[in-house]
Write a protein that binds this DNA or RNA. Sequence first.
DNA 1: TATGCCATTTTGTGATCACAAAATAGGAAC
DNA 2: GTTCCTATTTTGTGATCACAAAATGGCATA
Lengths: 254, 254
Amino acid sequence: MPVKASEIIASVHTRITALPVRRSISASETTSDNESTSSRGAARDQVDTSIRSGLLTGQFIPGKAVTIRGLAADIGVSPMPVREVLQRLAAENALEVKPNGRVQIPDMTPARFFEIYKARFLLEPELAELALPHLSRKDAKELKQIDDEIDEKINSGDAEAYLRLNHAFHFHIYRASGSKVLLPLVDSLWLQFAPFMRTVYGRVGTANLVDQHKAAIRAIERNDVAELRAAITADISDGMGILEPTILEKSNSG
Amino acid sequence: MPVKASEIIASVHTRITALPVRRSISASETTSDNESTSSRGAARDQVDTSIRSGLLTGQFIPGKAVTIRGLAADIGVSPMPVREVLQRLAAENALEVKPNGRVQIPDMTPARFFEIYKARFLLEPELAELALPHLSRKDAKELKQIDDEIDEKINSGDAEAYLRLNHAFHFHIYRASGSKVLLPLVDSLWLQFAPFMRTVYGRVGTANLVDQHKAAIRAIERNDVAELRAAITADISDGMGILEPTILEKSNSG
DNA sequence: TATGCCATTTTGTGATCACAAAATAGGAAC
DNA sequence: GTTCCTATTTTGTGATCACAAAATGGCATA
């Protein structure tokens, strides 16, 4: 997977599920900070980052179908790069290809939820441990900065910004591992539960959100492996614990 | 033969510019998860199973580049479905997209190897535990049948058949879990180390292969979770232990 | 013989077209 | 008003085309 895509998040993308073709092919107009305007695979990268950040910040609603032509018109490219990106995301289980070819955001089920929970529990502490030797005091400072912003967004109730920053916090740690195996697996997991998270936070709000970010930062500063693993584990437990009642009540009613 | 028969088909292919899809199946049909070969997405499914089974049985050599047009000509379809399938497999880290767009089988490195090892250790016992309640005595019987075939192939030195059957054994268990999250993750892991396995077995032979399949079957018959987890863990350890010297010596010489 | 340069070929990418299947809308029959 | 059927539109899929970047091969020169 080209890692260049995952670094820049939510810069080009404003709103995916927007109106029909109100954009022209303005590839040369928005070249202010575009790193690869006429490079190889430029359109595909653009589509990839757009849809990915859209998924992570909850722009897509679970159960809602997405169309190739619709996305292509929104982003302003031909359907071709969209087709390839959708295939990629389907391979990561971030999207579901129904037997008739339609693509939609998968619905969350209790079984799926607890599997994701379990996989995160197993993989993310391991990834944090791999990353710890590569994390400097400068990283700790940047993480603290992100965490402060998170607290801010929690207070202001900005669920979308919270999701984006929470993802940035965790993957700032994980990406430092230089992992080429575990990191993509965890990436796939986040893409799977993020849309569901958004619908929950949109309903219950962000007020009673708690996290173990400060403990994680402290562990990084002290270079304490056990403490970092414990913080990540507890953070997963906290985050998923908020979602759990929703998925359970949903399984009763539906 | 990796991907070389393109010359014969290529001449034919370039000639039939206006004809409908050729449905010549020239690749191995060893997998067994193809249940809906309706008209919708037929070519893509065909390409997907072809390349996937090719990867799992070691038809592709690590470091070797594959071309879209070459694969398309081999399988007998247009480049279009091949492009989508390659994107899918790249998303699963079974293939690597280089910055110039070329697609190749990733090279194995010590870091990658130990990460795959670790991920298998964490995920596969969990998957087996999830599967155990769904495994009947009929499954145990089928697994024993596969295992007998494996012993046969080990004695005859058929590395390709061994790889195919070993995959069939493990995924007969895992697939019973009905998992939608852990199973794709493990699927991705197998696609990543299988090509490397093939090159190793092609060099050191299959004579000194050992596995814990009989212990796993016994555990399934007894419905013993701990024993099944132990068997799977030991089997991973055995299998990867054979590969380990090769990856280490490779890191010294190259 | 070795090496740098240029023409040719190959390859990936994005766009467009054609077609069939599916979804949707609209109207007729009860 | 409800239901069923048909006509229209929408959508995914496969194929082909055009173009630029990259790889390849051959040739000239030192």
